[in-house]
Design a protein around this nucleic acid. Structure first.
Lengths: 255, 255
DNA sequence: CATAAACCTTTACGTAACGTGAAGGTCAAG
DNA sequence: CTTGACCTTCACGTTACGTAAAGGTTTATG
């Protein structure tokens, strides 16, 4: 199937101008140009345009999309998988915004007391996610995690002091893990103290605590390589040990 | 609680520049300006900023936000209610996008045949929603529904012929309702023919048919005043009658 | 008490991703 | 064979801020 610029625009719900612009910036070149200068697009371009729209939906700027999609290592399926998880994340953030509206209505009616901070927490999650997307991967690789975390912390409205306190807490947590892990007993009082410390640490960045969420995060510490590496760097097997300690701490696992 | 520009910016996760800009365009004026020209914001401004961010989240342009919020008839609670339903709509559209990604992955693997039209259907729903938001209310009031529907139809990639066919179908549907309604029997063959016609009509704008969705829409025809008025205009009680006919047609209600 | 750091101010130009004509060539239908 | 619906390339306009620059104010600290 071949498409002129107008046909493709119609199919995809974008304007011809947009397609010309994408041609100009080397994001989406037509399959060929016919004798009289008309742009002709084929199936490959249709699929590529769909990919572009997914990126755009996730607020990735065009320059970045060009860089990603023109990379010889670009893998269509992998990209779609990533789109999927990002869209799910976006939906989760939307869920929180919806809850915020509900609370704000109740607040307006005087039925629910609401701190100003809470009124914007869900919006800021969007920002944090964007911040991660834009600079996260790059900066994490170049300068390590601290810069990104500090930046995220700042976004959450933390003072420098709070951030320092959080860093200190994390150090205590690391020390506890280092001590408790070799015993191999995640129900030991030292291990439970670590779990408690971890909760304290969490409270700096979480709007509210729940055992379910805490336990869920613990599972992720082992499932997600990035986190696993982070705690295994402290001491070998640290991630699993912390997870087990937290699962016991939150009552999700018997001793 | 009083906030300087930086404090409020920090709280809400926006830049001071943004707040100055909102001041400039009369969207958010500080509560007062102190002796040395500093902008000072209070609780009222905090809440107003939250409202602004909700509008922004829904891609309403600032000019429109100014118009809406500076309108003396502006009702905070009503606005929040609207935000809520719009956010839910947005989440529903996100859900469809997520399904589209999943299908596209299957398609890529050759496990699922996918028409090009389907690849963009979910994106176009966003467009249709935006189109409605921008021009819908205004134009519906000024020129009636036809213009908007035609515009939406065009967005869906319908040809003029298709649109004409859809209009013809709708007229047939109206005639059937007009005939069947006075009998008062939604299970009559005429009424069921109307339900069938309604399904046909739907198929022009729906990507796929399901009895659940059809029945759900029928319920909405009575619940939502706009729709109710639309069918009651054909014949008094038309909305309820059509709903009952559809509920029987879809097997959601016994005869 | 000074002085530097961390705020704040206005002014003004830069930007991304197109929208919107203008001026003109191409193509299918009647 | 012409009319209307396409297409083309300039080229300037728009929105919602980002980003210095140049300077005044407030607050923490030696």
């Amino acid at each position: 199937m071949e498409y002129t610029i107008g046909k493709l625009a119609q199919l995809a719900g974008v304007s011809p101008r947009t397609l010309r612009y994408y041609d100009e910036i080397n994001l989406l070149k037509p399959a060929k140009v016919n004798g009289s200068g008309y742009r002709i697009y084929g199936q490959e371009e249709v699929d590529r345009l769909q990919q572009i729209l997914f990126f755009r939906e996730l607020d990735v700027d065009l320059e970045t999309i060009v860089a990603i999609m023109n990379d010889p290592n670009f893998d269509k399926e992998q990209a779609l998988q990533k789109h999927h998880s990002k869209l799910v994340e976006k939906r989760n953030r939307l869920d929180k915004l919806i809850v915020t509206v509900e609370k704000s209505i109740a607040n307006l009616k005087g039925e629910y007391p609401m701190e100003n901070k809470e009124k914007f927490a869900a919006f800021k999650e969007n920002l944090i996610a964007e911040n991660e997307r834009k600079y996260g991967e790059e900066i994490r690789n170049k300068y390590g995690n601290k810069v990104v975390d500090a930046s995220n912390a700042k976004l959450r409205g933390m003072s420098e002091d709070d951030y320092a306190a959080m860093q200190a807490l994390e150090k205590e947590l690391f020390d506890l893990i280092k001590q408790a892990c070799p015993t191999g007993d995640p129900s030991s009082s030292l291990a439970q103290k670590a779990a408690e410390k971890h909760k304290e640490w969490l409270m700096y960045s979480w709007p509210e605590y729940s055992e379910e969420a805490h336990a869920g995060l613990a599972e992720m510490y082992v499932a997600d390589e990035r986190f696993k590496a982070y705690y295994d760097k402290v001491i070998d097997g640290g991630a699993e040990f912390l997870r087990d300690a937290i699962l016991i701490f939150t009552g999700k696992k018997a001793i």
